[in-house]
């Protein structure tokens, strides 16, 4: 699968960009028209949180999609999707700090220290920040090999984000959505483990057969 240039850069990618802003527009429209229900602030905070999770999963989906379909081009959308996860994460955090706590730093600090679901949520956001900051090309070049290592933080931070959602819902028996996100994340991370195991197995096989297989080594590098 391949979208011809310049359509990919000039049409497809911008279209995905605009699509990623639709949730924000829908919320903005809802505020304007007062259709977000009796408690719009809770609705907004929750929506931003859920969109953060969705974009994290989409970001993780990209390389799986590439491996599954061979559609290499999709990798060129990964940074954009990751930055949208950070964008919605920032809005989620901002709505908590402002609309929920009104910058009562004492309460916020207490929340972070004493309420596990806030602790892990805050940690997930903190781990997302260096990834967003180092997302541009110059940082990539400068960090070299370490860039890839750094960006593997998306694995633990995604788990923390799902845990944040899970612990929030747990006491009110509303675990259906957190469970769904946990399963999707498990599939995406499980696929990576499977790939890693496969590489290991191929590598040990190829060393036995003495003939070096460049394609396998390339795959290992991309991990």
């Amino acid at each position: 699968m391949q979208i011809r240039e310049p359509y990919f850069s000039k049409v497809f990618k911008p279209a995905v960009f605009v699509l990623a802003l639709v949730p924000l527009a829908v919320l903005g429209w809802g505020v304007w028209q007062d259709t977000l229900g009796a408690n719009p602030i809770e609705y907004i905070t929750r929506s931003f949180g859920e969109w953060t999770l969705r974009f994290l999963l989409l970001t993780l989906l990209i390389s799986t999609l590439r491996r599954a379909t061979g559609w290499v081009q999709c990798l060129r959308m990964r940074r954009m999707l990751g930055l949208f996860a950070f964008f919605y994460g920032t809005l989620h955090l901002a709505s908590y700090l402002w609309l929920d706590q009104f910058f009562d730093w004492g309460e916020i600090w207490f929340d972070i220290l004493e309420r596990p679901f806030i602790t892990v949520g805050m940690l997930a956001f903190l781990l997302m920040t260096p990834l967003a900051v180092t997302s541009f090309k110059a940082a990539m070049r400068k960090l070299g090999k370490n860039w890839q290592r750094l960006h593997m933080l998306i694995y633990p931070l995604s788990m923390l984000a799902v845990l944040h959602f899970w612990w929030l819902a747990e006491s009110k028996s509303r675990l259906a959505m957190p469970q769904l996100y946990a399963v999707l994340l498990a599939i995406l991370l499980g696929e990576r483990l499977y790939q890693a195991a496969k590489r290991k197995w191929l590598a040990s096989n190829s060393s036995k057969t003495s003939a070096s297989r460049p394609s396998v080594r390339m795959a290992a590098k991309r991990a």
Binding site: A38, N39, I41, E42, D100, F102, E107, F110, D111, R115, F117, W167, L168, S171
Partner: peptide
């Protein structure tokens, strides 16, 4: 407090600040 959140304040439905 509820173990997961503070009970010190509340949002009165229809109001902006707690």
């Amino acid at each position: 407090d509820h173990p997961r959140w503070s009970q010190k304040r509340e949002r009165r439905i229809g109001e902006f600040r707690k």
